[in-house]
Computed example of a mutant assay.
Amino acid sequence: MKQIVQRSFDGIEALKIESGDSPKKSPFSAIIETKYVPILPWDWMGEAGQLQSIHSVQLPKVIGYSFSGIVKDVGALRNRKLIDQPVFGANPSGTASEIINSLIPPIIFPIPTNVSLKQAATIIGGADTVWHAVYDVLSISKADRVLVIGASGGVGQYAVQMAKMQKATVIGIASKNSQNFVLQLGADDAIAYDDNFVRDVKSMGKVTKIIDAVGNSHLLTQILKEQDDVTVLSLSQTNFEAPKINQSFQFNNGRIALKQYTQIVNLIGNGDLMAYIHQVFPFEDVIKAQEITKTGHAKGRSLLAFNAH
């Protein structure tokens, strides 16, 4: 069984593909053949040791937190109806492995027939993070003008869509090549950070709330210099000092209720929420995949593929 292992905090280049023992089934097990694992900023930040203050981990560890796959077997205390069912979920002990042993408490959810395994792999670490931000933390409403930084990425795509579902006015910041994509997501306007950025930020008007899905402190500072009373929620940088006294900043990557995962997957299945896939990489190319995703201009979420036969 192949898996992607982190043995040091030396960054992306230190990742290794290793052979591990097949998981031993317990009465609480759901044995899952992994299909897709999302590539998340959380991964490369953790691989560089940047998250130890908020999420300490012991090495070595299998990377990855969420996944989609097919249940192949279950233990005596799990529902046998799960066998052969497509599921998505999370596994705190790592997901970048050809086989996952999901134990109780189960963090797995069935995938309806109108949602693909690829789409489902974007939910945890993407749609759920934004759901918490939009509904639980920021309480975005029709009265808000919302700025989404990194609006075209795996998180940003959902931030634009969910803020629009609340009838807010939404402005997205992305690369010039992704501006049309951000408008297709439903944004009212799209600003390119690599083309006349300062001019456009000065002319965009006041915003009430900012969702930061990138974690670029220089970019955020430039924006806030042109704003006054505004609330900033970052999903990707833990520390930042706002330049003005009436600007609030917080980092939050909180969880949502289990029933809300069913709501999200049903929204995707009904076509009310789109899950865009930017690129799929063989898991053996994890170093290349993370480096491209970290530095590239994504339109949606990139995934690692397992068991592609």
Rank of each mutant, 00 (worst) to 15 (best):
A30N: 12
D195K: 12
K202H: 11
L15D: 00
Q6M: 06
L273I: 00
S66P: 03
G205W: 07
G269S: 04
F197R: 00
R145T: 15
F67W: 02
K202G: 09
V230E: 02
A305M: 10
A308D: 13
H132T: 02
I83F: 04
L220Q: 06
G215Y: 02
W131E: 14
S248M: 00
I264W: 05
Q237C: 09
H297E: 10
A289E: 00
A289I: 03
S236W: 12
A174R: 05
S22R: 13
K206I: 11
L82Y: 10
I108H: 08
G75P: 07
G269L: 05
S302C: 03
F251G: 09
V57N: 07
D272E: 12
I39R: 04
V214F: 06
E98N: 13
I99A: 04
G205E: 00
L304Y: 02
D195A: 10
L183V: 08
A308P: 12
E241Q: 15
D229H: 14
S8A: 04
Y65S: 15
Y65K: 15
Q85V: 12
I211Q: 04
D195P: 10
T238Y: 09
R7N: 12
V214A: 03
N114I: 12
G271P: 00
K35E: 12
P38Q: 00
Q179M: 15
K25E: 10
L220H: 01
A76E: 13
D194G: 06
V130A: 03
